[in-house]
Design a protein around this nucleic acid. Structure first.
Lengths: 270, 270
DNA sequence: AAAATAGTGTCTGTAAGACATTATCTA
DNA sequence: TAGATAATGTCTTACAGACACTATTTT
């Protein structure tokens, strides 16, 4: 029988009175002076700058690619950075990330596509100040070119060219954020239909398979892949249409299904 | 064939010069005045307070349990909170989380056991100021009672009693952080030997199975569980000893193996 | 016809679910 | 002895890997 999570016995001393350690568990009032050891007043408060940085992933010529921005200013001038922005006061993280992407590509990423990834806050990651970065990842179905004109310092890179010994210099810890984003997406591909968000509708099962192959860096057996996808209810829906081809048998076109959890997961080779 | 991630073609305009949007992708110098639209000077800089909050998980009487702290001050006075602390200037997130736990339990959680979970930064989550919280989760093998004396406002709770309609009032968004922590641990149990970090050495396979059952809230077939664990190299190592029992056949005692990735995962029922 | 890509069928091995049976202890 | 828990064995089913084969198009 399973435990069903009820009735803990009370334990511990049971004292509920305020203590210094209890108060340190959350912030002190801001406008008052020091309030016991560990408190902080208005002048020594550790104000931190919060940024968001977005790993945007799309397929470009069949390759997993990400949008990077060349920095025009120190620190890390000339290095490549993830699109990001400072979070404004009163602004949530997801809106800030949406804004950062929109400023880059002119494309509005739906908030639901932004997945929070990891937060980096090493004290020395920015030499100017304490800067905390919340990383996001978003899979998009088209590698929209960066908005033209004056904001043209962005460029899509093949991920495999970036995450490599002799890859381009990346700003801050953005290489780590990118690596974490790619790995997170690779893992989500195993259990969800996220891959279908990386290709344009309508798509063939070959398109879908190639998205998996690009993200996982492996090849998949087409027949077995097809069997798994079609055996999963509402992963994809047939449109009844066929793709025009220049060679070979025309493939059936599908659109995304209602969203799905893969049980058991689609196994990643290796 | 798999894509092997090479040679993107350059695209986009290729301009690398600084632009407003490029600069907004990271922070402005702090000590200078406003530096174009979107920049910020020393007075309007959005200083954010950063805290860490830790979901500590252990078994207590066979139930998945977590340590909560009763708040002695507004906001949310009297509500239960995760142990946490403000991150000090120059301090990393993991040291801060370690410190928060040590202040609660007197136990030093090894940094490797602290897994970053999710960051909450809703602008309204704390009425006093913009406070960002980075959630951590740590699995420990003993529900060490809170340090006694003056820091005795902490208490272990059965998770099932907390994450329930009529559970205790929780401060801020700590209920969400707790829920995310439990779910993350449940998922890690499928693919890793994390469960063995939740029980004291030496342990029996029954102990290990009950850890899974407590975290997953299900029951597992003992014979099949045993087969899976023992078929996985270096998940556990036999000690050669037997457990003293009051009833039933004595069970073989094991210690943790070298750490492992489960392929395929240990399937969670449902 | 040849080349190319899409799609089907089938065999096999691995591993999980279910559950019966045996082993070893205490009361 | 009964009762309890640990450990083994075995049957069956689900599903993934491998791969042969068929289908439909362009050149």
């Amino acid at each position: 029988m399973a435990k069903d999570r009820k009735k803990p016995k009370r334990q511990g001393s049971g004292r509920d009175s305020p203590t210094e350690a209890a108060e340190r568990s959350h912030v002190m009032p801001l406008a008052s002076g020091p309030d016991g050891p560990g408190g902080f007043g208005p002048d020594d408060r550790p104000g931190v700058i919060v940024t968001v940085d977005v790993v945007l992933l799309a397929l470009r010529n069949g390759e997993l690619s990400t949008l990077l921005v060349k920095r025009g200013r120190e620190p890390h001038q000339g290095a490549w950075a993830l699109p990001g922005t400072v979070v404004e006061s009163g602004e949530g993280l997801v809106p800030a990330a949406t804004r950062a992407v929109a400023g880059r590509t002119g494309v509005a990423v739906e908030p639901e596509r932004l997945e929070q990834l990891v937060t980096f806050a090493d004290p020395d990651r920015d030499p100017r100040a304490r800067v905390l970065s919340v990383g996001f990842v978003a899979v998009v179905e088209r590698a929209t070119p960066p908005a033209g004109g004056e904001v043209a310092s962005g460029r899509w890179w093949a991920v495999g060219d970036v995450l490599v010994e002799k890859g381009p210099t990346m700003a801050f810890d953005h290489r780590d954020i990118l690596g974490a984003g790619v790995e997170m997406v690779a893992e989500k591909f195993e259990r969800s239909d996220l891959a279908s968000g990386m290709i344009e509708e309508p798509f063939t099962l070959g398109d879908l398979r190639r998205a998996y192959e690009a993200v996982w860096g492996t090849s998949l057996e087409p027949a077995n892949f097809r069997r798994k996808i079609l055996a999963t209810p509402s992963f994809v829906e047939p449109t009844g249409l066929l793709r025009d081809v220049t060679t070979g048998r025309p493939a059936v076109l599908y659109r995304r299904g209602g969203g799905v959890r893969l049980h058991p997961p689609l196994a990643r080779p290796d």
